[in-house]
Design a binder for these strands. Structure first.
Lengths: 264, 264
DNA sequence: TGATTATTGTATATGTTTGACACAATAAAA
DNA sequence: TTTTATTGTGTCAAACATATACAATAATCA
């Protein structure tokens, strides 16, 4: 088990008074690389179990701001597309006092000399949590674990390890929401590099919709919508015709988005 | 100002310990009559200001159940279509201690002899509220005010009186959500009587979309989807051809709904 | 050097959906 | 019997979707 710094726990303990007592936020931070949709996960020091990055809401803080703060703390990124999608409020949303997580946390805290179980009690409470999803450019993000975690890394959406509590359900709901709101969300500009090929864009949509799209019809439809600039060709080194590079016409794209871009 | 019953306030005061301290639910309960979309509102006894029906969440209660409880308490209805749509968590979501609402509540409570301001403090706190929207058959609902309200009645969505706090914003968001999810929501079966004419169905969609639809194309499209039974004609008494009555093929309709019915 | 290869950009052919409008059928009133 | 307003259905052109064809082309290889 990795070390939990005593000072960080103390800091957290001091903040507890300033948090709303029964509400949290969890962020489903999505990225895209190697034709795979990725989600940022944390691994706890105590027991190696995985969870979504989340946090608590200060008494004097908007919940939207709390979500932005979590996003910023875990990725270093500001001004990112971030949308609330659902609030999870089952009465059993709490670490059971007999669960592995809780017992290991107890052990860790005892080792650090926190016999007054203020922090422990906090983590054992019921929290209603509001889920947010963010779309970020993996290349710009700098994943940072929090004080309870040793690892903060991107995981393939198709290969998610077991998650604590109902975090799996939260993730699934985020993906469902993303598919539903596909035509209202700045997918490409958030997840792709500045310049990309038509194939890149198609693979992105295929990864999210989880089904193949017809190449030539995809190309025709996208070009007709008219939100792409065409640039120089990209010499791939492969023995075939080189594809053009494209970039988004930012204003045109966002104008279209606000009305919903028609895909499937 | 109408009378607030001392015993009801006492009951509420006793329940306060059992509520989560910073979370509430608000319900946008929609009905349909006279070709108008309606929403159920409460009018406070203290100052005649209007609000959405809402309530608090018991420490041992799912938030979804809390919303169902509010719906049941205000309409007498169970097993109704009810969906969460958004959580409102601005840090200023609290009655200001200098607001009319709060001053009048103070006055009322003082008259009733509640000098220990437990109830007052409660209503002055910040609440994060989760919004739910319900679709109900107006004919079956029996509106009941709560102990702080004298009136519980249907208001035209096109003529909403000023509402407390951010309830106007909550209502707008609910309507926006409804329009967005139009193709996934059992509009007709929830809001229309068992048998109805094609015009009834069209007017309902027009009321929600807030724009006219072309009659003959609407009819063609609906009939092609094949989720309606055709019944006898309805003799309207008007000097023209009588329309058929229709009803929903429940299974067929819900099968289609789960994939999303294509309109707009 | 010229044939070979895989991929790209564009075109076409066919079927389906949409939106605007035409029109006959019809229940009741004039 | 004529008039009226509304309903159910038909039609026509435009837009769109789907499948497929095919030439252009960057690099490889015989």
């Amino acid at each position: 088990m990795d070390n939990i710094p005593h000072s960080k726990v103390k800091d957290f303990e001091n903040q507890i008074e300033d948090f709303l007592p029964n509400h949290s936020v969890d962020c489903v931070i999505l990225g895209y690389a190697n034709q795979q949709l990725k989600v940022l996960l944390l691994q706890w020091k105590m027991n190696r179990s995985w969870c979504l990055p989340g946090g608590f809401v200060f008494k004097n803080e908007d919940i939207d701001d709390a979500a932005h703060r979590v996003l910023q703390e875990r990725t270093g990124l500001n001004e990112i597309f971030l949308n609330q999608f659902h609030t999870f409020g089952r009465r059993d949303r709490a670490a059971s006092p007999t669960s592995d997580e809780y017992l290991l946390l107890t052990e860790s805290m005892n080792k650090l000399g926190f016999t007054e179980p203020k922090v422990l009690k906090w983590f054992n409470k019921r929290f209603i949590t509001t889920g947010y999803f963010a779309l970020v450019d993996i290349a710009r993000a700098q994943p940072q674990p929090d004080f309870l975690s040793s690892v903060c890394e991107w995981k393939d959406v198709g290969a998610i390890p077991p998650l604590i509590l109902d975090h799996r359900e939260i993730l699934e709901k985020a993906l469902e929401h993303l598919r539903l709101r596909l035509n209202y969300v700045p997918l490409g500009p958030s997840l792709l590099p500045k310049k990309f090929t038509m194939q890149d864009l198609q693979k992105l949509y295929e990864a999210i919709l989880n089904k193949p799209l017809e190449r030539s019809n995809f190309q025709r439809k996208i070009l007709k919508l008219g939100f792409l600039n065409r640039h120089e060709k990209q010499m791939t080194g492969a023995a075939n015709k080189a594809p053009y590079l494209y970039s988004f016409k930012s204003k045109k794209y966002h104008d279209l988005l606000s009305g919903g871009i028609g895909f499937l």
